[in-house]
């Protein structure tokens, strides 16, 4: 990243922990119920939800399984299912 000011040491490495391993439940979105409003995206604290090809998708790489997305979805299109289950 080019910057006008100072370059943080973090350019050498960004501190991160494997928060995906915290999950007991994982969010599963039902694409048939989802109306693509984007509300879940605005509330995910981990920035795990994005729009790709006009559809919202949940990236589980860092998702902590907090359940905010499922709780806030006005259509109840997201289910929290036990990690390891289908």
């Amino acid at each position: 990243m080019a910057r006008d000011f100072i370059t943080p040491k973090g350019d050498e490495g960004i501190y991160q922990i494997d928060t995906a391993s915290w999950r007991t439940y994982k969010p599963v979105m039902d694409k048939d119920i989802c109306v693509e409003c984007g509300i879940c995206l605005t509330y995910c604290p981990v920035n795990s939800i994005h729009k790709e090809n006009e559809k919202y998708i949940i990236d589980l790489s860092y998702c902590k399984g907090c359940g905010i997305c499922a709780n806030e979805c006005p259509k109840k299109a997201i289910d929290m299912v036990t990690e390891g289950d289908k």
């Binding site: 370059t7 973090g10 050498e12 960004i14 501190y15 991160q16």
Partner: peptide, 14 residues
């Protein structure tokens, strides 16, 4: 960890 640890940063800005 947003301020980082040792030589790593937790943000992508200073």
């Amino acid at each position: 960890g947003c301020v980082g640890w040792n030589f790593d940063s937790g943000l992508k800005v200073p």
